[in-house]
Design a protein around this nucleic acid. Structure first.
Lengths: 189, 189
DNA sequence: ACCTGAACACCGTTCAAGT
DNA sequence: ACCTGAACACCGTTCAAGT
């Protein structure tokens, strides 16, 4: 089977321009109002008709995926590099902080990410699985070094990171970061 | 100033009946579809007109408050009783589990509760503050006994409990309960 | 005192018709 | 190949008119 990215033909110039404008407006709108912001308004701000948005992005998650896939790949790559961190626990902690910051980019992302990992129909599924796999490598290394409890899983870390981002969205207090620190401590042997 | 509950005059019989039917339908709908379920459909199912719902419950949160205030009072009372638990940490842990189960009653509650605690205009604010105060007493007792770290606050516990409930809503894996356990461990001295 | 139902301004999504 | 804009079915919220 061919799971690779489909070889995409170059877009027509006007299509490409609309595509880019939609992405730019969506990035602004999501950053300011969260991922539930009206798609109709995004289309309007981008100066295109309603249906044009749906032509490029059939679902809200497809739009998110286009917006975030580069960044998610970078997060996974950063995790791979941290496998060379002198301290397994230090590498894990550093990556957990980066992943939390990543999930806090737009309000609503924590929800999307935590759901996407077990929803195979989600356009974010593949990217989230890659992030989870990176977390797994970091957790395994720390576990093998005897620095975290043997029952800690990558899914524990993934849920924590998204929960911490979610807490930060809901409440102005620094509870998100504190949740992250307390729980990482709880992971330790 | 008079912060007490306003002395409410008895409702007209038909009003009381509509009020009760709306509450019953809302409880069902929220339990099955979460707290964002359409208010219009709730009114329809209760057999009343749109505006009747708004007459009784000006906001969605007012409806939630009517639905949950007894239960929230009970949660606070259970916390007070757990102050007599032989183990301060044991009492705290038991209450944290009860509070998490409480916040998991309807999908969306974690969000509502975490926001309400710092939003004074929320109809849920008072009840959430009472729950927070109970958590504070339990945390203080465990701290004085030297069983939790001195920097752990009631707000840490409150955020954790709602985050654990939120995680359980998003994902079928048992990550919510695990987050609770790991973090409570991280609270310990 | 309470209820009704229409009115208003908004959404997401689809799809025939255009270019 | 892509875009437009109308169409459809839905919302939350308000408020004049009724009883």
């Amino acid at each position: 089977m061919d799971t690779g990215t489909p070889r995409r033909r170059p877009m027509r110039a006007d299509a490409r321009r609309n595509y880019e404008r939609l992405l730019a407006e969506a990035a602004d709108a999501f950053a300011e109002h969260g991922t539930d912001f009206s798609l109709e308004q995004i289309a309007r701000r981008a100066g295109v008709a309603n249906g044009t948005l749906y032509g490029h992005f059939p679902t809200r998650r497809a739009l998110l995926e286009a917006l975030l896939s580069d960044r998610m790949r970078a997060l996974a790559a950063a995790g791979e590099e941290l496998l060379a961190h002198p301290s397994p626990l230090g590498g894990l902690t550093e990556w957990a902080r980066a992943a939390t910051a990543h999930a806090a980019l737009y309000r609503g992302l924590g929800t999307a990410f935590l759901q996407a990992v077990e929803d195979e129909t989600s356009e974010l599924h593949a990217a989230c699985q890659a992030v989870l796999a990176t977390g797994d490598a970091l957790v395994a290394r720390a576990r093998n070094a005897g620095e975290v409890r043997p029952d800690v899983t990558a899914m524990d870390l993934y849920a924590l990171v998204n929960a911490a981002a979610w807490v930060s969205e809901q409440n102005s207090a620094p509870q998100g970061e504190r949740l992250l620190e307390f729980t990482l401590t709880g992971f330790r042997t």
